[in-house]
Amino acid sequence: MDEARVHISGFRMDFGATTVIRDLSFDVQAGETFGFLGSNGSGKTTTIRALLGIYEPTAGILHINGRGFRPEHGDRLGYLPEERGLYKKEKVIDIMTYFGRLKGMDRRAARQWSLAYLDRVALADKASSLLDKLSSGQQQKVQLGVTIMNNPELLILDEPTKGFDPVNRRLLMDIIAGQKRAGATVVMVTHQMEEVERLCDRVILLKDGTAEAYGTIDEVQNKYGGRIIRIKYSGTIPPSPHYAVLLQETNYAELTITDATDEAAILKDLIDDGVTVRSFTTTKVSLEDIFLRVYGDQNEPDVGPPEAGRRTPDGRLSGDNRISRDGA
């Protein structure tokens, strides 16, 4: 537990009468890249703010490097807040130099580093422009630069790709990967599941104020059945205790295995039940699938009891095929 960069246990956060985080615990180890996932409003930003001392937690321990975060401790932190913003009426280079100095660099080093960074992100000609003369994506690049100044050992990025075009998203991912190679621990909030699969070592899924799933991507995938069966068929797929139907169209369906049965047995069952199977492939369940499965029923206007298994408009099942929520 000692080398955990981030340690959160028993965290609870109430805003007035509303409980946003009920009971949350997780660790982020030094050097890993950690995906912090959850639907809108699930409390990701709140957790990060509480970790950084911006919010006062209702209860719980939130530590960075073994103690509550304070800027004056000198932990090298790079934080990209969800609410972006820098001094709008100042020159880009002045803002970057200022923050560089606040982060402990000397003026010359901060300036040189900033100019090199601006060059790298194709903003070299904007160094002397006022920040508000830049486009919103360009401002984001400046903000990312400020975030990674002075080689942070812990990077906390709240939706870093928000507002970037695909080219710049790639650039940003490269920059984050570079920080990671340089030894930084990265905690990132994102709604882009491919990014998580590509970059993250471990993830946590936040739901209803606690951890819905927590572990390596493999572990999380396995928890949600691990594999998805995609079949092209004709006939009717019968209900079964061994699998759940994730998606059902006229001649195509996606199933997920809900017990210890193996795929071959399911194929045999289907054929025995008179289904004509034209193709049968299995793939690992994607994080996107898991995300949809975990949060997919949240936006329904229907207020029926969540345990009542029911088919969503696009054919997904909810309730009965949900993995019991045992947290982390």
Partner: peptide, 17 residues
């Protein structure tokens, strides 16, 4: 006010006392 209006506060609060 500038820190508040331009959302600089979070950045500032995590950088210095």
């Amino acid at each position: 006010l500038e820190e508040k209006e331009n959302r600089v506060t979070e950045m500032i609060l995590t950088t210095l006392k």
